[in-house]
Structure formats: structure tokens, C-alpha cells
Design a protein around this nucleic acid. Sequence first.
DNA 1: TGAACTTTCGAAACAATTTCGCTACCGAAA
DNA 2: TTTCGGTAGCGAAATTGTTTCGAAAGTTCA
Lengths: 351, 351
Amino acid sequence: MSLTPSNGKPTLAAIARLTGVSTPTVSKVVNGREDVAAETRAKVLAALEEAGYQSPGQRRTASGTGVVDVVFDSINSNYASTVLSGILDYASEAGVEVLLSVTGGLPAARLDVGRRAQRMLDEGRAGMIVVTSSLTDAHLASFRRRRIPVVVIDPLNPPPADVISVGATNWSGGRAAAEHLLDLGHRRIAYLGGPESAECNQARLHGYMSALMSRGVQVLPDLVIHGKFRTEHGVEGLTKLLSLPEQERPSAIFAGNDAIAVGVLREARRRGIRVPEDLSLVGFDGTALAEDSVPALTSVTQPLHDMGRAALRTVLRQSRGEQIDSHRVELATQLVVRESTAPRPGIRAGG
Amino acid sequence: MSLTPSNGKPTLAAIARLTGVSTPTVSKVVNGREDVAAETRAKVLAALEEAGYQSPGQRRTASGTGVVDVVFDSINSNYASTVLSGILDYASEAGVEVLLSVTGGLPAARLDVGRRAQRMLDEGRAGMIVVTSSLTDAHLASFRRRRIPVVVIDPLNPPPADVISVGATNWSGGRAAAEHLLDLGHRRIAYLGGPESAECNQARLHGYMSALMSRGVQVLPDLVIHGKFRTEHGVEGLTKLLSLPEQERPSAIFAGNDAIAVGVLREARRRGIRVPEDLSLVGFDGTALAEDSVPALTSVTQPLHDMGRAALRTVLRQSRGEQIDSHRVELATQLVVRESTAPRPGIRAGG
DNA sequence: TGAACTTTCGAAACAATTTCGCTACCGAAA
DNA sequence: TTTCGGTAGCGAAATTGTTTCGAAAGTTCA
């Protein structure tokens, strides 16, 4: 008799035995049919739970892998692809699959949060990683309500306290960049940052301001320009700075990321401004862009790869029900000096 | 008797009837088991095809949203992320999800093709896009056996005739690049290509050779160097070319892709060789790398974004059972002249 | 030649799902 | 109160698909 639940793996028949219903009824419960009384369903579900029953479909895939949703704003940047490769890296180690989507900067309209969350539950996805994208608190709450683990990397908006976020020490990075320029004798240092409201941008800005203020250098509003994290912003930003009266122009620029810095570089070349002789430039991110540009960019390196890994690790931990100590994971940034910074013109090096 | 194939929906038993084998055997074929003779399998597959059989799993998920598996070799390149963004683009239009994985250049060891194919069937995935990665014919066959649509983008090995591949007009691109250099008066033109066996590399090489030969310029084996599609290969390649006796050194280099060209650029700068004054350089791919490098690279632009879109569109068509006319989709390349090419030293421009 | 494998396949046992009809209960009409 | 149509809940049986295991045929090697 093969119906004995003491048998190796639980079968529908065994569950039926246990609960005193027929096999078809159990089958219906498993498949979510309507024609089962609530009471009966509850009883069967309890037994299924206890016996750890898995449908044949599940059996095949359960031992294999979970699926993690990853949502990017856009993947057309070194930043994005480095983070992504960190995620994929860890995914292959941990044996989970990565379901990738991009919002294209849309305010998550296409995301259709409700349906998405439902699908994730239906298909037993382990959780979700949101990169940079601006999900509203309402969206995040919708996932939290359903107990779907969510980790945010470099959130644009500060997430609610109970959503875990992964980022870098942006403040220290900003401060290190500004201090480096101050050390080189620069006093008029511009900040060509990212979106004003973005949290990471705020942190970098305040690190920069903190460095200036602690050296008694005044922060000039004209030298702080926000915009997008894109090359064009660098081009326009430099143009704007050069339209200032000559004595107010900066001798150094701290760019909010490498793409902006590359834009500055491009516009500077077009105008015949030499970097670093006439203008020092520090980027942020430390992507391949920084290494490959000419001159190679001094940049604050973010451990993007590791941030991706950390994010996925955290999601998987959550999905296993482990307690997470901290709601904010920050990995260290590091200033890497290359060729785009030099002492202020008119100042002797080492002076 | 319910075995009659004239019945409503096709069943395994009906197929078995038709082909004169047993039900279990048909089941095995459907599930891609190995213990079925090739001949028997073919017969059964034909019957399955004709009857339009669908497994219960397929039946259930067919109506839902599809998932497409995308396999990259690596995503750390402009090439990869541009193709990927094309895929994601179309995915969001078509309402399918993208499951991304990277092989990391492993010979598909981690891929575990059998299990993967099974999962794809179980979960009703629409199909698979393989980018650049070197899947063996055996792997591809394993998917074909289970009638999982597969499209390969820029395959390293020429795929079996019945696997659809998407690529660009590499031959014409190679020819256009070489002709451009010939037009500028160059006669000693090196080709710093990709992996020798890679199909796209072969096509570019032969385009280049064809251009040279049609102008009566000899193709010199010393000036053709194969390697990886990576920056380092550019550095090493230029070093090798410069180790030739002076009168044998090339005055122009056609690089197999932009990354290689950037390597050449870097090494040239280190050695004080001016591009394009001393050395003309043409890249391939037309990624952001080409635009951002200094000097901006003349490059053969591939419509990478569109290739991604086309690949996904083709997979989805296949999965809907539409007939695909061609087993090879080629999108047009275009030579974009920027700053890295100039007339051969000693030749007057326009002369 | 024959022993030891391998390959290929199907009978039979299993597992799961679907169909269909029985039963019990409910509320309205007689 | 009785009757009757409707319906929700359930399971028997039929149907569909999968797995196990051994038989038959072929292959390799001594």
C-alpha cells in the first residue's frame, strides 16, 4: 500500500489519508480550485504544510533555484553594469536566478506594483533589489505588506526606516574628494552634482561642504550646480561655471559622478582648457570610464561590484527569515588619484 | 476508446498510437530524456509537431506572461549592455520578463543545460537568447529537441543550420573599414582581430581581406593578429606590431572591436605615437567607448540595440509558433568616421 | 564464442488531474 | 409542513502523464 505517509516523499494520497478527504480534494486545494469549503481547505492546507508537500512542478525546481527580481532605472551606464555584474556574480554562487527589468525612469507606472507583487508571491520569488530607481514609499510598503524582501541600492529618495538599503560612504567620499583638492591648494572648488533630491548626491554634497567648512573655505552657492548624472550635465555645468566673472570661476571641480566628469573633460578640451594644468577634476564612482578617459580621472571609487553582491546576499538572508541587524549597509569609498588633479595654478607643488 | 487522435486535444496516448510506440516513450521524448533512439525521437517529434501537442505545464502557463532566458558571456562591456538594453526594451513592450545569467566564459559547465532546459519547460518560458557565448552544438541541440526557441546573437561558433542567429553585416563592415583606410592612402593595414575561430571575427577579417585584394594590396600574415576582444589585446597587439622591422610596420590598424582599439590608443599614447597623425585607427561596434575616447574613434557601428530587439522579437515569434523565414538575421553596419583616421603620413590629403 | 555492458523500449505501477454525478442543505413556493 | 429546484462540497472513476524496472537486442572486449 503506497498511501502510507510514512513513505519517503509525501504524496497527495498520503495527505488525503491524513486529513480524511479524498485525493482529488487535496489536488483541488493544491491547485487553488474554488469548489472546496473553507474549513476543508484549511484542514488540508495545514496537513500539506506539516508534511511539507511539494507539487511535482515545485519538486523539480525547489532544489534548484529561487528567482530574484532586479529593477534598474537604466542599465546604460558603467555604474549600472558593474552593480549588475556583482549581483549576477553572487547569484550564480548562491544558485538563484535574476529576473531583470528596467523602469526607464518612468515613475514605476509600467511596474504595476500590485500585480508584480502578486506574481512574485505566486511564483515563489525570493525578493527584489531596486537600484537607484525612484520607488515611492507606497510601492515599497506594498511589498513589505506581503513580506517580500526588498533591498534598495543607492536610493534616490530616502527609503522608509524598515526598508534595507545598500550604499557607499558617500559623505566620506565627498569629503575625501574635496580635501584632496584643498590639499592641492584649490580654494574655489565647484560641485557639479547629481539630482538635488537624490540621497547619495546630498551625502556627497555635504561631505564636500564639510571639508570646505572645516578648512574655513566658504561654500559659494554659485559653485554648486545640480543636474542629472549624465555626461551632458558635465558639458552644461562647465559652460555655466565659465560664464561666471573670471575671478569667481573655480580652479577645481568635484563632479557628482564619472559621467559628469567626462562631460566636463569633453567641454574643457573643446575650449582648450587643459586638465589638470588649468583645471583639476575629481569624479565619483571609479568606473572603467575613469581609467580610460584622457587624462585618467582622479575619482572616488565605489565598490559597486560588492554593493551588488551585498544587496543580493541581504535579500536572500531576508527571504530565509534571518534577522538583519542593520537597515543600512554602507561599503567604503576610496579616493583614487590619477591624472586629472594637480596643484592650483600659481601655487608651487608641495608648497 | 479515448486513444483516437480524432479526439479533441492531442494526448500522449494519441501520439503514441500515431507513431506506433508506447506512451512512456512519447513522454520521454517530450521531456527530453536521453534513452530514446534518434530515429524514434525524430518520428515522435514529427507527430508531436503535426498534432500540436502541448504538455500540461505549457498549457497552464501559455496564457500568462512569458519569461525569456538571456545568457551572456559577460556583461562588463559596452557591447553587452547595449545589446541587453535592446532586449529589455522590447521585453517591456512585449510584456515579457527577462531572466538574465552570465556564464563568465565557462564552457557552459555552470549552465547545466539539461536541468536548465527542463526548468524552462516546467515554467513555461518562451525561449532563450544566447549572446556571444560559446554553446556547443550539443547544447543547442538539447534545446531544439525540446522545442525551446533559441536565438543566438553573434555566435562564436557557427550554429547548426536550424538555429536562428542574429548578427550584423560584419563582412561589409570589415570591408568598409579597410576601404576607408585604403582611400586615405594606407597600404600597410594591420588587422587586430578577435578570437580566430569566432564567426563575426572571421567575417570582419574576410571583409578586410576582400577590400585589400580588390585594390591589389597584399594581405600580410604578420599584420593579422588574433586575440581576445579586450583592451589588453590592443595593448599587446600594438606592441607586437611595433616589434616588426620599421619598413614592415603598419600605418593603419583596423581593430576587431572598440575595446581593442582603445587598448591600441592607450599603448600608442604611452609610446608617444600620435593618432591619427602617425597611425590611423578604426574600431568596430560603435559603442559609447568610440565616442568618448580621445581622439574619438572612427568605428564601424553595429546596431547593437536593434540586434537585441530583433533577437527577442524572433524568439517570441518562434514561441508563438510562427514560421521564421530566415535562419540568419543580419542588420546593417555603418562606418562612422571620427577623429582617429587621417591620410597616410607623407601623402597629401585629397592627393 | 561468450561474458559483460549498453542502448532502447514498453509493461506495470504510480502520481496527479479532470469529469461527472451524488448528497446534503437552503430557501421559496405550494 | 412538504415539495422542489438550485447549489455547494465532495469523491468515484476515468483520464492523463511519469517513473521504475526488466526484457530484448546490439556492442565491446577478452
